[in-house]
Design a protein around this nucleic acid. Structure first.
Lengths: 160, 160
DNA sequence: CGTTGATAGTTAGCAATGCTAATTACCCTT
DNA sequence: AAGGGTAATTAGCATTGCTAACTATCAACG
């Protein structure tokens, strides 16, 4: 299919340097991601909300994290993270550590219970995706692997 | 605690993963999609929430819809749709029609203002993604194009 | 030293989502 | 006319996410 240039509105042109963008790709990606994301979100277990699960996952993966760092990762404002972490702590899934050098800073870490819940939750979510990935050819799987890298980079692009 | 999630499809609760499935890929894809999806959701613009936008989109696309049908499409319970539509109506973006034959039924339709907002909203979302895609190399763009096809197929895999 | 300004996190309060349970209004069949 | 089922709504709850304002702490500079 022929890539059609996207008429980029002024506000976006201020951000984006390249005026030529593949409109079709943009639309297809947006729809695919929005829908898949929605399905994954619905795939949360019963014991914890999606936001909590996501935060817990980041905490486990990236070690002891300050709340500010966690908020940045989760793309949420500090007050939201404060509350989410409070709920996680109340459920015994994360623990807070005081920073010895700077008493303003709070670090959070996953507890064994948190890790265990995460493991179970992942199995469920992964099973959902995995069941679908299983229908793909090896070449397609490899393609998605590379695409995942690109998507990860995309997420790190900070346009301000 | 958390709102009770929708019923989980049986096959997702079933056994963990087939050993052949690449676990790392599954995890990375899930995270990338979930986060990118969240960002797109945040990119709604100020005038309307994501749920409202999604509902409005379905209403425009699938013609006059009963609230029950809309709830099914949006995968939410009837009370949620009632409220979302009420907000959309208050904003003048949709209009209700009484069903002449069955007075229990309410149908909703997008107003011109609703259609217009939808058009603008799409452009803004596309611009968000487009700005990021612009930072990619041609090879990466091509990769994503192929990945989009795979993702689309993934979504069509109907396991339940 | 001690103000002064920045930084980290919290609290308070708002609007919205999503749910369940219960209710209202209505249709259809008997 | 009575019953049971269907469509939508209301009421009430927990959660999310935000902004604005506040506390506590650190660091720097005169």
């Amino acid at each position: 299919m022929a890539p059609t240039p996207l008429p980029v509105p002024a506000e976006a042109q201020a951000e984006a340097q390249a005026p030529e963008v593949d409109r079709d790709l943009v639309v297809r990606l947006r729809l695919a991601i929005a829908r898949l994301g929605r399905r994954l979100r619905q795939q949360t277990g019963e014991e914890i909300t999606y936001s909590q699960l996501s935060a817990l996952g980041s905490i486990e993966k990236r070690g002891p994290l300050t709340l500010g760092a966690l908020a940045a990762i989760e793309q949420v404002r500090p007050p939201s993270i404060t509350r989410i972490v409070a709920n996680l702590e109340e459920a015994g899934l994360v623990a807070r550590q005081a920073d010895p050098g700077d008493r303003r800073i709070v670090r959070v870490e996953a507890t064994p219970a948190g890790r265990e819940l995460l493991r179970r939750g992942r199995i469920r979510k992964d099973a959902y995706l995995a069941a679908r990935l299983a229908a793909l050819t090896p070449a397609e799987t490899e393609l998605l692997r590379q695409a995942a890298s690109v998507l990860e980079r995309l997420l790190e692009v900070d346009l301000g």
